[in-house]
Simulated scan of single mutants.
Amino acid sequence: MSTPTSPRTGRLLPARAAWLRAHAWAHRGPVRAAVTKVVLTLVGVVVIVAGIAMLVLPGPGLVAIVMGLAVLAAEWDWAKALLHRARIRLEAARAATLPRNASWGRRAAVAGSAAALGAASWVFSAVLMGASPAVVTQAWTSLVSLGG
C-alpha cells in the first residue's frame, strides 16, 4: 500500500504525517505499545458492538461498524485486510451500478432511486417511532416545499 503524498509537492499529507507521528509515539516502548493495543482493541470492539445494535435501533449501524474496523485496523492486520476487501467490493458494486461512462439517464435513475429509498426509510422510521400518519404527511409536505 502506497503512502499518500501531495501530487503538487510530493510531501506526506498532513493527516498521514500526524498519524505516523502518533503511531511512532504509541509504539516507542513495549508497555506503551501493549497499552495502545489493548485500548484500541477495546474501543474498536465497543464501536462495532454499538454498530451492530444500531442495525436494529435508530442510528448509522454500518458506518459505526466500519469505523470500529478502522480503529481495529490501526493495530490488527486482519482488520486492515478486511477493510481492504470491503473497499474493493464496494468499488466493484459502485462501478457495476454507476460506471464512469454511464449515461445521464442512468445517473438520474440511480440518484432518484437512492432519494426514493432514503425518503421511504425516513417515513418508515418515523412511523416506527410512533409518529401518526398525519404528522408524517405534514413533515413530508414541509420537506418537499423546501425543495422548490
Rank of each mutant, 00 (worst) to 15 (best):
R16M: 05
S6F: 02
A96S: 05
A102S: 15
I52Y: 09
K80H: 14
T9I: 04
I52S: 00
L72N: 00
A73G: 11
T3H: 00
A17R: 13
L98Q: 12
W25V: 09
E75I: 13
V35F: 02
M67P: 02
A74K: 06
R100P: 04
R11F: 14
A134T: 13
A86I: 07
W104Q: 11
V35Y: 01
R100N: 06
G61N: 04
L13R: 01
A70F: 02
S121W: 09
A115E: 14
A74I: 08
G148K: 13
P4S: 03
K80M: 11
A18R: 12
V56E: 06
F124I: 04
H27I: 02
W122L: 11
L82I: 03
L128I: 11
L90H: 01
W122N: 03
A86Y: 09
A34N: 10
L90Y: 00
T5N: 10
A111G: 01
L90P: 00
P4K: 01
A81E: 10
T5F: 02
S103C: 03
A33E: 02
G29S: 05
P14S: 02
T36R: 01
V136A: 04
L55S: 02
L90I: 04
V127D: 00
T137V: 10
P30E: 13
L55W: 13
L128N: 07
P4L: 10
R87S: 09
A92S: 05
S121H: 01
V110M: 11
G148S: 11
P7L: 09
V31R: 12
A26T: 06
T5V: 14
A108I: 05
P133D: 08
P30H: 14
A81Q: 12
M54S: 05
A26H: 06
S113T: 15
A115L: 13
G130F: 09
R89D: 00
S145G: 06
V144T: 12
A22P: 00
H23W: 15
P14Q: 03
A92P: 04
A131T: 09
A18L: 04
V66C: 06
V38S: 13
G10H: 01
S6I: 03
P14E: 00
V66K: 14
V45M: 09
A109D: 05
G147D: 06
A15S: 02
R106W: 15
L12M: 06
Q138A: 15
L62A: 10
T5C: 08
E91G: 07
W25Y: 12
R16N: 01
S2V: 09
L20Q: 07
A24D: 11
G130C: 07
N101E: 04
N101W: 04
L90A: 02
T97D: 08
A86W: 09
P58L: 09
Q138L: 13
P133G: 11
V123H: 03
R100Y: 10
P60E: 12
A64R: 07
M129L: 12
G61F: 12
